[in-house]
Write a protein that binds this DNA or RNA. Structure first.
Lengths: 166, 166
DNA sequence: AGGCTAAGTGAGTGATCACTTACAATATAA
DNA sequence: TTATATTGTAAGTGATCACTCACTTAGCCT
């Protein structure tokens, strides 16, 4: 699964054959099909951890109650991603263009938390603000995954400043 | 090329065989290879128009000189995309994750124009502001391509308001 | 030890892949 | 009209694809 994740994320699901996954993982090709049934289910086994990983990432935000702190922690969220998980999130972002694997529902807990926070901060349209900040997060995450964490630091500070934080 | 664009954008370059492109285009498969040489060159023929399309999209902004108007026009840019070109831009965004086809240089004219505009508007770090707004554009474009123009209208107004426009 | 299950393999399978080739139809120009 | 170049096609090609299958190996319980 680790090898498949690497190859799916950096080469592409359709571009990488099961024979290559098996070879680079150091197992026989047949084993893939014994374990996962078919290639698609291998991808699904990898993607199955998405919900858990998101919840783990959100945990620190969800338990925060101070509105300004909620916003601050959300902005810092993309920078808390473990570098070992970059491949996983890269795959996630790539598959966003596949309707089958794009599930906006997963972000709802964060949206809700942010909506309440922006409400507490007297923003005019809290839910719209929440959805907009989520998009900015998407943007920053994309940059981090493509150009590394350092490249996104100026943006982090700019966004924090725009929300009157830091 | 139109058929290939449709299929590459909505199914995926590696996922769609040349036989299917030929069938849906109503030509023989051999003709693809007579015209384009190979599958990759067919993709490149489609992508070749990127620079021209970007320049056309940027034209209205480049010739504007009033700083506030520059920012306003940039924010409205994603909404000026012709719906007939959605497939093309969808493909563009999909291939952003392929290093081979991601060329940030193409956005530089817009960045420069925005940097000057933000400078004129007394922003503290004009280039950073320019690159940040470009990212927001990216975000809004993504939303338009995935959920349609109407879904992005609230964001458009929010962003305009955040820059003190509209 | 023996018996059972799960894990793992290597050599296939037909289907499909990108691409080629030999040839036919059509347009162009004198 | 006729010679020539261009545009198009049908039927392949070997390579590679996802997947199967008969079989071996390894772990585990009694």
């Amino acid at each position: 699964m680790d090898t498949a994740l690497d190859l799916f994320a950096n080469v592409g699901y359709d571009a990488v054959p099961t024979s290559r996954i098996a070879r680079e993982a150091g197992v026989s090709e047949g084993l893939i099909f014994r374990h996962f049934g078919n290639k698609k289910k291998l991808l699904e086994a990898i993607m199955a951890s998405t919900e858990r990983r998101l919840q783990e990432a959100f945990a620190g935000v969800i338990e925060e109650d101070e509105p300004a702190e909620v916003v601050r922690k959300v902005i810092l969220l993309p920078f808390t991603i473990d570098e070992n998980e970059y491949d996983f999130w890269r795959l996630q972002f790539k598959l966003k263009w596949d309707k089958e694997y794009y599930n906006p529902r997963l972000m709802e807990p964060l949206i809700q938390k942010l909506t309440v926070a922006f409400g507490g901060l007297q923003y005019r349209d809290p839910e719209l603000e929440a959805r907009f900040l989520e998009q900015i997060l998407d943007t920053i995450s994309t940059q981090i995954l493509r150009e590394g964490r350092e490249a996104a630091l100026p943006f982090r500070d700019l966004v924090l400043a725009k929300y009157g934080l830091q």
